[in-house]
Nucleic acid binder design. Sequence first.
DNA 1: TAGCATTCTCGTACTTTGTACGATACCTTC
DNA 2: GAAGGTATCGTACAAAGTACGAGAATGCTA
Lengths: 233, 233
Amino acid sequence: MNEKSAASPTERLPLSRERVVQSAMAIADGGGLAGLTIRSLAKSLGTKPMSLYHYVRNKDEILDGIVDAVFNEIELPVPGGEWKAELKRRATSARLVLRRHPWAIALMESRTVPGPANLRHHDAVLGTLRAAGFSLSLAAHTYALLDAYVYGSALQEASLPFDGPDSLAEVAGPMVEMFSTGDYPHLREFAMQHVLQPGYDFGDEFDFGLDLILDGLAAHLPEPVGGIDAGAA
Amino acid sequence: MNEKSAASPTERLPLSRERVVQSAMAIADGGGLAGLTIRSLAKSLGTKPMSLYHYVRNKDEILDGIVDAVFNEIELPVPGGEWKAELKRRATSARLVLRRHPWAIALMESRTVPGPANLRHHDAVLGTLRAAGFSLSLAAHTYALLDAYVYGSALQEASLPFDGPDSLAEVAGPMVEMFSTGDYPHLREFAMQHVLQPGYDFGDEFDFGLDLILDGLAAHLPEPVGGIDAGAA
DNA sequence: TAGCATTCTCGTACTTTGTACGATACCTTC
DNA sequence: GAAGGTATCGTACAAAGTACGAGAATGCTA
């Protein structure tokens, strides 16, 4: 009865849809999507499972919520800025965000109703492209290409058996063993001579592709009229 | 006792790991990953849930199995062939396969132990690149870039709310409504003037990016010695 | 051919999960 | 303080993965 006022101030905050989503993200970050259950979520909020259903219709709505929260973390490009730099900044940011929340990738496929952050994001990218003189058609190509690359890169990184150059050593043993059978000669060469060499970091691959794509896109743009300040003269 | 011989020949086939995996794929194709349960799988095989556990350790092993089965459907590039054509063929094939089995994309992120078809696939791609004169480092870049693009494109297609130019009309209504608020002006323009125009097919975006990437890669290759049949003269 | 061992099948039951239903506690407004 | 909405949650059920171990089928040896 009166024990409510004695609890920590943190969990005395009233429940809200926002707190539910925030907590859900924290759980997914810590224990993956599998660790996110209504019960674990309720516990982390200091409440009981059924209380959450006052703020969300069902678990799917929570998933939609955390996906949109992820989009919210991605830096938006600024329409009117130098398009290459803007797109690179947002791509790099998106990739970092997805690395921080790898569970989001799997979710994106299943959530078909975009949230407001998602829409805002798309709008900003399209705005940047249009301001830089991209035709609608070229903007469509560009958007599809860049997004596919960013998401695909995130997907690759998420499915790597290691997590940066350090823990690479941990899987090196089994890897070498697997290739010792003589099958997969090229994979073997690739692993031994390149990936397992000191200094290799898969994360570095990202920039190569991103630059290649951006440069390729630039070649598709009509000549900038002025040539000094990127946009229009 | 004697009712066994009366059943249809189809379900009289002895159970096997292969049949389990095949059936699991069929279920996932038909009803998505959510429809694939041990119970539904057992029923489709004319048996009972626990019988499956003689052939697979657990459900995860089934998921690993169907992911590798998907890789098995992708056309391998032929090392020694014209690299651009080979890579394009395998990328196109991969994308078609992933469109046929969209559930595979979500799985790829979670499965970290590659199956034999997966390894064979990687080996063939690397072999093709090496035979074409790609350095290990450039091969790594290329592999990461192409795979990211293919998987990312598949991910995009899978999360589209529509499924080809036909059913696009179905979502046009809600789309237009959503944009009528005045937010998202660029998205609005994009939807109205481009995506919702007759003839637009998102599937066409794929080739643009693929060609851009392949052309960009070609520029990174050292000059081909002969110059007749490899790259550009 | 008889007996035994191995392989395969599956009935039962426990655990974890999402969530429906309805009761309780709380907080306002008169 | 009574009334009525708002927020919380106790209980319970259905669906799913799978542990356990019993029974049936099959093959192998003598």
